[in-house]
Design a protein around this nucleic acid. Structure first.
Length: 589
RNA sequence: GCGCCUGUAGCUCAGUUGGACAGAGCAUGGGAUUUCUAAUCCCAGGGUCGCAGGUUCGAUCCCUGCCAGGCGCGCCA
């Protein structure tokens, strides 16, 4: 019979720390098991969750209502029994039963404060490490060679990068792989265009724009004239069979494109451990067909090789075209086999837009059938559109990512110059970069990825309200208070003073701080950085209110240090959390 | 036709996977700065949660059917 150990001290240092939510959940489970030893409680959602309203306490448990049927007791009586068992818990100041059987838990102030102090001293800020010893591959960004990156490309790039950081914070080893679109029929057309329409000066000045231009011209010709189509086809065959000249051109297209992509990645602060385009797996493609054949998965149909997925109730999937070319499903299978053999990952995550859902279901089904055991997950996000319709390169409605970033930095610079006119221009520039890029990233990350996003300049560049600059501003104010404290009271180390939760605002802050590790875990479990962004915004809002209403440096000694210390923890969490979103936190704004 | 997704305040979006009176931001109106950074804070108005049924002690959330929009459905990725 498990019992609550009265000597259990939440402030004991151990790595990793247990989160408050987990601690409460295990206390609740123990209490249920103690009160109802003969019942089967496995199916019940016995867990602590943050309260919907702070007047109900800090955490609540709704399992009593759900348990009523199993236990054949009124939910209120169940809740009462649990409440009595938790009454003596040193972590809790109050246990109240409310409504039909809500169990409302209020944390003991002192226990909460001690927990925060421990968290503050922990390198991981108390974030659990479920990923220790595990490896993930994250496939994201993956732009097409010779095509400019538009505002829509930011989604995969920024969401993927944030997920990488979040998983790393949980102890996973994560390999980010930029699976470039660097192979396919478009290269025949591009080579043809290069031979006929190239403007070398333009290529020098703006490579991708020029490649895009010659591609469009050649593509139009191919649409109109059969001889051009044959020529393009011919160039492609030559490329695929290793013709040195075409190979060199193709490599040039990739190099030029990467040069530009890397500039954007540098501005965004995004990096990859691997950059392996589709072409990397070319040699493996025939083998994939053999494997599929061996498993009896494909049949010939109208000259093409087709995989049928009737069992899964999925439409058929072409793996090799009638002209002998391979499709992306084949490349994807080759990729996953290669990754499995080389890296033995514990999971592979793909971040793409919603249009690829069917493709991934087909590809995952085929991968399983050929024996891929690695868990594969498709993380998709809604398309980005403009208020007036879809972004389209052809219609010219697409907005280049570069332009968005430029505009964001420009607007941020105006704000910085206005707020900090005395700051050296170089520093103003640096701050503007952090703020502008942060604003753009946050606009994407703070939104549930599954809803379609409507791009507006106002939203993408928002610098007040629920935005990265709001969070960065909160951070900078705390940093400023910290420095002023060190300046005015050089002999006092605020980290040596205990945290006291002596105001409602301080307590509200404390509760949110304590939830941070759970938030990181939740964001990963749901593959949604927006969960983290929301929580950080909530924290910053609570802090801003605290800051506005409670004096720091003017408070009496002791209280002063306690508040500065609490603020320091807010800053630590903000910086940590924003870093997980890939957003920088300047010390001054 | 079939499949996936979306529909919540004037606008843009949250809503902890079935819990307590549905929440933010922007916009609108009012207020706060001799004080630690006003990119801030405080207050106010604003809702048939697309519509209609159903399951449940309890539904914005689950099921069914409609309506509206987006995306996809054998040789593009």
């Amino acid at each position: 019979m498990p019992t609550v150990n009265p000597s259990y001290d939440i402030t004991i240092k151990h790595t990793p720390m247990q989160t408050i939510r987990d601690t409460l959940t295990s206390r609740l489970r123990t209490a249920f098991a103690t009160a109802f030893p003969d019942a089967t409680l496995d199916a019940l959602p016995i867990e602590a969750i943050p309260t919907s309203d702070e007047t109900f306490g800090d955490y609540q448990c709704n399992a009593a209502m759900a348990a009523a049927k199993v236990l054949r007791k009124p939910p209120r009586a169940i809740a009462d029994a649990i409440g009595r068992l938790l009454q003596e818990d040193p972590l809790l100041a109050k246990v109240e039963i409310a409504g039909p059987g809500f169990i409302n838990l209020s944390l003991n102030d002192s226990a909460l404060a001690r927990h925060l102090e421990t968290m503050q001293g922990d390198a991981n800020l108390g974030i659990p490490q479920p990923g220790a010893g595990k490896r993930l591959i994250l496939d994201y960004s993956s732009p097409n060679v010779a095509k400019p990156m538009h505002v829509a490309h930011i989604r995969s790039t920024v969401i993927g990068d944030a997920l990488k950081r979040i998983y790393r914070a949980l102890g996973y080893e994560v390999l980010g792989d930029n699976h470039l679109g660097d192979w396919g029929t478009q290269f025949g057309i591009l080579i043809l265009g290069y031979r006929h329409f190239l403007d070398p000066a333009a290529l020098e000045a703006s490579p991708i724009d020029e490649l895009q231009r010659i591609y469009v011209l050649a593509h139009q010709k191919c649409e109109a004239e059969p001889e051009w189509r044959d020529q393009a086809r011919n160039e492609l065959v030559k490329l695929q069979s290793g013709d040195p000249e075409n190979r060199a051109l193709w490599q040039k297209f990739i190099d030029l494109s990467l040069l530009e992509f890397n500039q954007i990645y540098a501005r965004l602060g995004v990096s990859f451990e691997l950059v392996r385009g589709e072409s990397y797996y070319n040699d493996a493609l025939p083998g994939v067909i053999d494997t599929l054949q061996k498993h009896g998965l494909i049949r010939e149909s109208e000259g093409a090789l087709v995989a049928f997925l009737d069992e899964e109730k999925l439409p058929p999937c072409i793996v090799r075209k009638s002209d002998g070319g391979y499709n992306y499903a084949t490349t994807d299978i080759a990729t996953v086999l290669s990754r499995e053999a080389e890296f033995q990952p514990d999971g592979i995550l793909y971040v793409t837009d919603e249009r690829q859902q069917l493709h991934f279901r087909q590809f995952f089904a085929l991968a399983r059938k050929v024996g891929v055991k690695t868990p594969l997950r498709h993380i998709w996000f809604g398309l980005m559109r403009l208020p007036e319709g879809l972004l389209s390169t052809r219609k010219g409605t697409a907005i280049k990512l570069e332009r968005l970033l430029d505009e964001a930095e420009k607007r941020a610079l105006e704000l910085v110059q206005q707020a900090s006119p005395d700051m050296p221009p170089e520093q103003q520039q640096a701050v503007a970069r952090a703020v502008g890029i942060g604003a753009v990233k946050y606009a994407d990350l703070s939104q549930n990825p599954q809803s379609a996003i409507t791009f507006t300049w106002e939203k993408a560049l928002a610098m007040d309200g629920n935005s990265a600059p709001y969070l960065q501003y909160a951070y900078a104010r705390i940093a400023s208070v910290r420095d002023k404290h060190n300046e005015r009271f050089p002999d006092v180390d605020f980290l040596q003073e205990p945290i006291a939760l002596d105001s409602p605002q301080a307590r509200r802050l404390a509760v949110r701080l304590a939830r941070y590790p759970d938030t990181v875990l939740d964001a990963a479990n749901q593959d949604r950085p927006a969960i983290l962004a929301d929580a950080l915004y909530d924290l910053a809002q609570t802090y801003s209110s605290f800051y506005q209403n409670v004096p720091f440096l003017k408070a009496e000694p002791g209280v002063r240090e306690s508040r500065v210390r609490l603020g320091a923890l807010v800053a630590q969490v903000l910086r940590h959390g924003l870093d997980l979103l890939g957003i920088a936190t300047p010390e001054r704004i």
